[in-house]
Simulated scan of single mutants.
Amino acid sequence: MKTMMGYLRSDGSVGVRNHVLVLPSVLCSSNVARKISAAVPGSVVASHNQGCAQLGDDFQQTRRTLINTALNPNVAAVLVVGLGCERVSPHELRDVILDSGKPAGLIMVQDYGTVEAVERGTAIVRKMVEEASKSEREEVPLSRLVLGMECGGSDFSSGLSANPVVGEAADILWREEGRVILSETTELVGAEHLLFERMKNEEMKRRFAGMLKRMIDESMKNSRDVVDKENVPNNISPGNVRGGLTTLEEKSLGAMIKGGKVPIVGVKEYGELIDPEPGLYLMDTPGYDVESVTGMVAGGSTVVLFTTGQGTPTGNAIAPVIKITGNHETAKKMKMNIDFDCSAIISGKETLEEGGKRLFELVLRVANGEKTKSEILGQDDFSIWNVGIKL
Rank of each mutant, 00 (worst) to 15 (best):
I257W: 06
E249S: 07
T246Q: 11
E249M: 02
V226Q: 14
L245M: 10
R242N: 09
D225S: 14
G244M: 03
V232I: 12
G254M: 05
L245K: 05
E230L: 15
K221E: 05
I236S: 00
N235L: 03
S252H: 07
D225R: 09
N222I: 08
I236T: 11
A255W: 01
S237A: 14
D225T: 15
T246W: 02
N234R: 03
A255F: 07
G239F: 03
M220V: 08
G254D: 06
E230F: 15
V227L: 13
M256Q: 03
I236Y: 07
V232L: 09
V241W: 01
M256E: 05
D225I: 15
S252L: 08
L245I: 15
P233V: 09
G244W: 12
P233W: 11
E218L: 02
V241F: 06
N235S: 08
A255C: 12
M220Q: 03
N222Q: 12
E218V: 01
S219M: 01
K258H: 03
L245N: 01
K229D: 13
G244I: 06
K221L: 08
K229H: 14
S223M: 12
K221F: 00
G254S: 08
A255T: 01
S237W: 02
N240H: 06
G244E: 04
T247H: 10
N234K: 07
E218N: 05
E230C: 15
E250Q: 11
M256T: 03
N231K: 15
N222Y: 06
E250D: 02
V227R: 13
M256A: 09
G244S: 10
S223P: 07
N240C: 11
N231T: 14
P233D: 12
G243P: 00
S223A: 15
D225F: 13
L248H: 05
N234D: 08
P233Q: 12
R224W: 12
S219V: 05
S223E: 13
V232S: 10
N235H: 06
N234P: 02
T247Y: 02
N234E: 03
D225M: 14
T246M: 11
G243M: 00
V232T: 13
I236V: 14
L245V: 12
G254A: 04
T246N: 12
R242K: 09
S219A: 11
R242E: 12
L248C: 09
M220S: 05
S223K: 09
G254R: 07
S223Q: 15
N231P: 11
V227Q: 11
G244Q: 07
G239M: 03
N235T: 08
